[in-house]
Each structure stands twice: as C-alpha cells, then as structure tokens.
Design a protein around this nucleic acid. Structure first.
Length: 885
DNA sequence: TACGATCCTTTTTTT
DNA sequence: AAGGATCGTA
C-alpha cells in the first residue's frame, strides 16, 4: 500500500500520526450532498441549450487540447509537455464548464503561485466576461482559483475551531521562515541544545520533511531510533508546542493541518465537497504528499459523490514529470503514478505539441532531457520550421558574462524590424546570488530591468519590524514577534528585565504580553524597565483596543493602522535617525511609506466576498445558477448572516472589520512568492531564478552560469536523482525561450568572495551539437589563472556552427568526463582532510607556507600563508600542494 | 544597557 | 560578500 493510501485508509505510519478515522468510511451516505442537478448531472444535461457558446470556446484547440478541455466528468490526468498550451487548456476547460451551466462557485482550480492564480483568473474572466471587471460577472463570481496554501489558510480560519485543532484560533499567525528560525532558536535554547551541533536550519528542514510526509511530532518520535533522530523528535515536539502557544502555524502546517482536518472531521469534509464539484490542479508534478491528499479528499470518492463505483470524482490534474523541480520540497512525482492507481477510471490525455519554441530550442531541450534515466520518454514536437541555433557562449568571468548578455539584449532591442521589447528578454540563473553582477551591468547600461523577488521587500529589516508589530497587534500571543519588537527601537527593555518578566510570566501562568503589562509586580525588574514595559503594552493596547479591537481609533483604515504603528512604535524616528547618519539607510524610510501604500492598496482591493471560504457570498453571487444548492448553513459558523460590514470569514468571534482586514493582509503578505512580482507589462528585462521561471515564456532568454557546482548546483550532486532534478531545471529554463536562447558559462567565477576556476557544466555537452553553436569569448590563456598553473586557460573546441566539445587543455589535456570530475572532487576532499591546520606545505610556484584554514566539501580550499607571497586561498583540487613532513 | 567591532559561517531552489 | 553571533567597551 502506498503511503498516501495508508493515510487515506488510516493505516500504517500515517494513521498513527492522527489516530483518526477513515475519511471515506460511511461514504455511502454521500449521495444526497448538495442535491442540485447542475453538479450531479454535469454538462451533458445542459449541453443542448448552451452548445453554441461552449463549442465556440473550444475553437482553435488541437484535438488533444480539446479533449482535455471538454472531458469534464470523472478523473482526468493531463500530461502536458512544456509549451503545449496547458494554461490555455485549463482556462478553456473552466469556461466550458461554466458555459455548460456549472455554477462558477462549484469550480476550484489550484495553482502554485499567486501569480499563476491571478493570471488564470484574468484569462477566465476575459473568456467568459470580456470587458467586465474581474469578479463582476455572474459568470465568474465565486469561482475559486487560488494556491494550495491560500486555500488551506482560509480553510483553517473557517474550520480550525470546529475541527477542534488544539490551540488554533481563527486569529492564528502564519510564520514565515524568519519567524520559524527565531522560534527554532528559542526552542533549542529551551532544550539546552547547542546550535552548532543542532543547526536550526537542519532541524527545521527535518521537521518540514516530516510534515510533508504527513508525520506529526508524535509519529516522528515513534519512528525515531538513533540518538540524533530522538533529539530531533524532542525538538519537533517542543517546536510544535511553541507554535501553538503563539497561536501560529508554519507553512507546512497549513497543508498538514488541513489534511488532518479533512480526514478526521467528516462534517467539514462534506461541507467542502459540497461546495466544490469540479477540481483542477496545475503543476501537478510539484505537489507533495499533503497536497495530493488534500486534493483527494476535496474531490471525494465516487461513493461520497453518489456516483457509480466504477467512476470517480471530477478531478483534473495537469502536469509534466520533466518539469518536476521541487523534489527538495517534498514534491513527489509518484503522485502522478498514484493518480491512476487511486482513480482507476482516470483518462489520460497527452499534450505533446509545443507551440512556444523554435525547433532548435526544442531539439536542444529534448536532447538534454533524454539524459535522465528516471524518465518515461515522451515526444516533444513542433510543426514550426526554422529558427536560429542555440548559442553557447564561453566567457571569462561573471562580469564578462553580464556584459555579453546585456549587449545581446541591446542588439535585439535596437536591431531592425524584428525589434525586441525589453520585456521580451529574460536572464535566468540557478541561484539568486548570480543576479547581482547582471543587475549592476544593466544599471550601468541604462537597460530597464526587474528582478523577480517578491519576497525581498518583506524581508527588509524595517519592513519586517513593522510586520512584526502588526502580527502582535493581530495576535498578542505571538511571542516570537513580540520579542522581536519589544525593544525595537530600544526603549530600555533589556535582557535582564526580559528574563525576569519571562520567569514571572511562567510562574504566574501569564502570557508574555500580559506579564509586560504587569511588569511592576514582577520581582527583579527595575522600576525603570517596568515602566517601559507597561508603556509598551499600553501602546499595543491602543492599537488593538486592548485586544478587543473596539477601542477608539481602531475602526479606522488598515493603512491608517499601519501608519500609526510606524509612528507610535518609534520605528519612524529610529529609521529617520539612521537615515540622517547614513545615506544608505535613506531608502528604509521609503520602504516604510511603501508598506503603508501596500496596505492601502490591499484594503482597496479587499472584498470579503472574494474569500473562497465565504460560501454564503459565493452562493449568493452565483444567483440563479445556484438554485437548489444546499450549503449547510445551520452549523452556526458562517451560516448566520453576518450583519457586520466585514462579511463572513471571521464569523464566530464577531471580528470587527479592521481586525479581519489586518489578518487577511498579514496572510497575503506571508504567502507571497518571488514569482508573484513578475509583471509582464513592465517593459523591462526580467531577471529570475530558474525555479521562478517555470510557467513563463520569453522571446529571448539567456541562462547564465552553466558551470559545474552552479548548474548543476554543488549541493545537488550527491545522488543521481538530485542531478536529474538539476537537469530538469535546465530543461525548464531552455523551454522558456521562444525564439532566441543563449547559455553562458564563465571560466572564472567569484563565489562567496572567492575567485575561482570553474568547470563547464556537463549539461553543455548534453545539449548535443546539432542545434548548438559555440562561441568562445573567453580567450584567457594563462593570465588571471596563474595560481592554478597549468589547469588555467585553454581554449575550447568547436566554435562557429560546430559542436561543443569540452575537451580542451583543461586539467592538462585530461578528458573531463563526469567520472573524472567526481574523481577530482574526491581528490580535493581527500587532500583537504589530509591537511592539518598549521601544516607546512609547498606550492610549486609560491614556495613554502603554513596552512591557516581548510574548508571541506566539493570545492575544498585552504588558506595558506606563504613565506614569500603572503596569504593565498587555494582550491585544493587544483593547487598542487605538497605536504612537508 | 546599547552599540560597535570583529570573527565566523554560510541557503540552491520556495509555498 | 554578507549576515549573524559574540564580545568588549562606553
């Protein structure tokens, strides 16, 4: 039995995690859910009267695409190759459903990024209600197109209390990775574990992996055998307690808790199933176990849906195994295989025709991806002819690389009739660190550009400060954020005082925030500190009406609240002072302003009826189409009409509008992704990671850093499967390009401050030669690379229209096959481990010296103080160091 | 208690 | 290169 099946049936490890019942037991009672005809009957019933419009929607699709769009009943697996018009198919499919009389609010489409969701909403709107504002038309109103994480956040808000998840109230906070890491550090401290032996990062990643596998702390503990994992289990448990005490959940919890809730609480599962009758999942290859199960449970079984047992629910998943690039995050390609296992009646539709790229680009992509062994080959084809070769450019270093790329874009931009707009161009790279040099060059050349880093803004210190205050305002139990802001800007609350208050809180059974308010009663707190604490607590009280949000001034706008917090917290003054002192800090004030604007903007766009969990509003909006649909409204939660202006999400706690707005705002901030910030209309060159580029396309693309240890990344070479994921990443990059594609590889690159010789990526060889033209611009012969002696320099074969050949003079004429590389890396490792600090060594050129430091890993290097030439950092793999006895 | 200087390690990718 | 942590000093 697969793990997923175990979870669903309540068996095995996963069952222990939740000790709950089988969600699908008693499913025979499900026949009458909803009881409406539209959902149960499906398009066929309505096809007659709507046929015209529906048929028109399918025009211009290929046969395969059409089948994918119109096969709306039952489970469907769409294997959509890169550039095969996947988004188009999903959009048309939604249109087709609505055109056939399915109320939009019964349709749920899940994507991975907000941006993808937003785009899809837009396209559906264009299709169904052209000219009307988004969400205005009854033909789209109530349609849910969102991300897994947003949906889960909303489900948790609506149902957490009813599901009886301990410690989780509707005002829960979502912890981002910075919050998580603070909490983890606290946790380790509390357990008296050193962060050296138990790095917070690894702890968090172990926990995250467990949660992705649907294992909670108790289950993890049960499976923990050795000392290390038993310690992790302890940390896990404590971390969970910390989260719940703070009324918070982390990213993984959003999925885990919802999976658990849907499984264990039949009533909730039914309610969600009643609402959604048509489910679509994009980028299915990137779903993890939890997501797979959430989708399964929302879709329900044939029995739950009152369908004949040989059929299945209306769930359509769209994915491409070749574009699976989130394995490290728990994504599981076997979800694709298990789909057919779980839904034996599933129909599979393959979309193999590529409409995006030229034949050479496609050819190169195909040649590359064929090197993956764990793969079922599928043909990728295009009917398009012509197209220029894919350029491979060898350059000197990252600066040269940036120069060449930017020059190329300028050429395209300025060149003749086929002129390219800036927004047609993109630079893709493996790691964010590579963007810097490119950015500098673009800036210098005056080329407009945008970097896809939606999260960067919210990670700025000053912005994080304000958000931390806001989180505390929304939820004073959030002690991680409380600790962040309690003395920022400094207000005389120091470590000693805080420690005293903490123990006071513990002994009095108070939360930290309450304890601050009563600090005067705490032993060991100076009067001065106690006053400061009390003042701080009162300031927060002033913002949130002493926790009730009823106080004067709290009824104002969200932007108003944010502004008040910035001013009254003293942050404004603090950053003004900084800015006066240091010019670099000037933009911090701008960021604070921008945050206020972002709140104002959010407020403007916010409509409680847009909340997918506001079932009532959705149904109401659905109007006539929704007649006869029984949404269970007697449960008391959101069912009773909310007469408050805020609408129904908060429901039970009678949340006033401002608090609801604040929660929604913080939630949206917590769930932004880097890719979200890509705005195709910005008229600028786009810079982004290969991961963020998934799903996008550009007429001209450059992929930089085609070097070993960069792409494929050094951290991803431990196993064949990791390497294959890197190859898929390269594949994703290549298939983003529509007409022009260049791949660059620099001979030298400065990584973390160390200038070092590189090895061209093995992927370059794997592109084949047929569609590639190599141009060696590096013309380095010796020169810069002296420290590495004979391994430096060398020129590459190929050039012109020829093939690419990695056999140059590198490594003294050695053929650097990948085996040879592995060998050399190990050699470097071995030498590193054999080098003791203080060891006397001799370098062929620099003479004798003493080892100052050694780092291990794939690129082991040592700092050596030479008698004649001073301290040098050497890459052991290349430096022929001789150890002197 | 607060701030600065110095030393040290290090994220690849992200919801 | 840069951020974080630690330590010493005002």
């Amino acid at each position: 039995m697969s793990k997923a099946a175990e979870f669903l049936s309540g068996g095995g490890e996963a069952r222990d995690a939740f000790a709950g019942g089988d969600p699908f037991a008693g499913a025979d009672g499900g026949a009458d859910v909803g009881g409406d005809e539209a959902g149960g009957g499906g398009p066929a019933d309505h096809a007659a009267d709507q046929a015209g419009g529906a048929a028109a929607l399918l025009e211009g699709l290929t046969d395969d695409q059409r089948r994918a769009a119109e096969t709306t009943e039952g489970p469907v697996l769409v294997l959509a190759a890169a550039g095969s018009g996947k988004t188009r198919v999903i959009t048309r499919r939604i249109g087709f459903l609505v055109e056939n009389g399915i109320p939009p609010w019964q349709i749920l489409a899940l994507t991975f990024t907000n941006k993808a969701a937003g785009e899809m909403r837009e396209r559906v709107n264009e299709l169904l209600a052209p000219g009307e504002a988004m969400g205005e038309s009854r033909r789209t109103r109530g349609l849910t197109v969102t991300t897994f994480h947003s949906l889960c956040a909303r489900l948790l808000r609506r149902y957490a209390e009813r599901a009886g998840i301990p410690g989780l109230k509707p005002d829960y906070s979502i912890y981002d990775s910075a919050d998580q890491s603070s909490l983890m550090k606290q946790t380790l401290k509390a357990l008296d574990l050193s962060t050296t032996n138990w790095p917070p990062r690894s702890m968090l990643s172990a926990i995250s992996n467990a949660k992705n596998e649907l294992m909670d702390a108790e289950a993890f503990e049960r499976g923990a055998g050795d000392f290390a994992s038993r310690t992790v289990a302890k940390v896990f448990k404590r971390y969970e307690t910390g989260l719940r005490k703070a009324g918070a959940v982390d990213f993984d919890d959003l999925l885990l808790l919802v999976a658990k809730m849907l499984r264990d609480t039949e009533e909730i599962r039914r309610e969600v199933q009643d609402r959604y009758r048509y489910l679509m999942i994009d980028e299915y290859q990137d779903t993890n176990r939890a997501q797979f199960l959430i989708a399964s449970m929302i879709a329900g079984t044939a029995a739950e849906r009152g369908l004949p047992s040989e059929s299945g629910p209306n769930i359509c998943v769209v994915g491409d195994p070749d574009q699976s690039i989130y394995g490290w995050r728990g994504a599981d390609i076997t979800n694709i295989l298990e789909f057919e296992e779980r839904y034996p009646s599933a129909r599979t539709i393959s979309l193999g025709q590529n409409f995006r790229s030229t034949a050479p680009i496609l050819g190169v992509a195909d040649t590359l991806i064929r090197h993956n062994k764990q793969r079922k080959h599928k043909d990728l084809y295009t009917t398009a002819e012509g197209g220029e070769r894919v350029g491979v450019v060898l350059c000197r270093d990252e600066h040269h690389e940036a120069e060449l790329v930017v020059d190329w874009f300028k050429e395209l931009h300025e060149g003749g009739e086929g002129r390219f707009a800036w927004k047609d161009c993109a630079v893709l790279y493996r790691t964010n660190a590579l963007s810097r040099v490119l950015e500098e060059r673009l800036l210098r050349e005056g080329v407009p550009y945008v970097i896809a880093r939606g999260t960067a803004f919210y990670q700025r210190e000053e912005v994080k400060d304000v958000l931390a205050y806001l989180r505390v305002v929304a939820n004073t139990a959030d002690e991680v954020n409380l600790e962040r802001v309690v003395n920022k800007p400094t207000r005389g609350i120091g470590k000693a005082g805080l420690d005293a208050v903490r123990s006071f809180a513990a002994s009095a059974g108070l939360g930290l925030f309450e304890a601050l308010r009563l600090a005067g009663d705490a032993p060991g707190v100076s009067a001065r500190a106690a006053n400061a604490m009390k003042a701080f607590a009162e300031t927060v009280d002033g913002w949130n009406g002493a926790g009730t949000f009823m106080g004067a001034g709290v009824s104002g706008s969200l932007a108003g609240l944010v502004e008040r917090v910035i001013k009254e917290s003293g942050l404004e003054g603090h950053y003004k002072k900084l800015a006066a002192k240091n010019e670099q800090d000037a933009d911090r004030l701008d960021n604070l302003d921008e945050l206020i604007s972002s709140a104002a903007e959010f407020e403007q766009d916010y409509d409680p009826a847009d909340d997918p969990m506001n079932f009532e509003a959705a149904v109401k909006a659905g109007g006539a189409a929704g007649d006869g649909v029984a949404i269970s409204s007697e449960e008391g939660s959101g069912g009773v009409a909310d007469d408050g202006a805020g609408g129904g999400t908060g429901g039970e706690d009678g949340a006033p509008p401002l608090l609801e707005l604040l929660r929604a705002y913080l939630e949206s901030v917590a769930l932004v992704a880097d890719a979200d910030s890509v705005d195709p209309d910005q008229g600028a060159v786009t810079l982004m990671t290969l991961h963020a580029a998934k799903g996008l396309e550009f007429p001209a693309a450059a992929i930089v850093g085609l070097e070993e240890n960069t792409l494929p990344h050094s951290r991803a070479q431990a196993s064949e499967s990791e390497l294959e994921e890197e190859r898929r990443l390269a594949f994703v990059g290549i298939t983003r390009a529509m007409r022009h594609l260049k791949l660059t590889s620099a001979r030298y690159r400065t990584v973390r401050g160390i200038h070092e010789r590189t090895i061209p990526s093995r992927f370059l060889e794997e592109l084949g030669t047929e569609h590639v033209s190599v141009s060696d611009q590096s013309d380095v012969s010796g020169g810069l690379g002296e420290a590495w002696g004979e391994s430096g320099g060398g020129s590459f074969g190929g050039g012109g229209g020829g093939g690419f050949d990695r056999r140059g003079r590198m490594g003294g004429g050695m053929d650097l096959s990948s085996e040879a590389q592995v060998r050399r890396t190990r050699e470097g490792d071995r030498r590193a481990s054999g080098l003791a600090l203080g060891a006397k060594v001799r370098h062929p050129r620099f003479g004798p010296g003493v080892v100052k430091s050694v780092t291990g890993g794939a690129n082991a290097r040592a700092q050596v103080a030479f008698e004649q030439v001073g301290v040098k950092t050497l890459v052991l793999e290349y430096a022929k160091l001789e150890v002197l006895g």
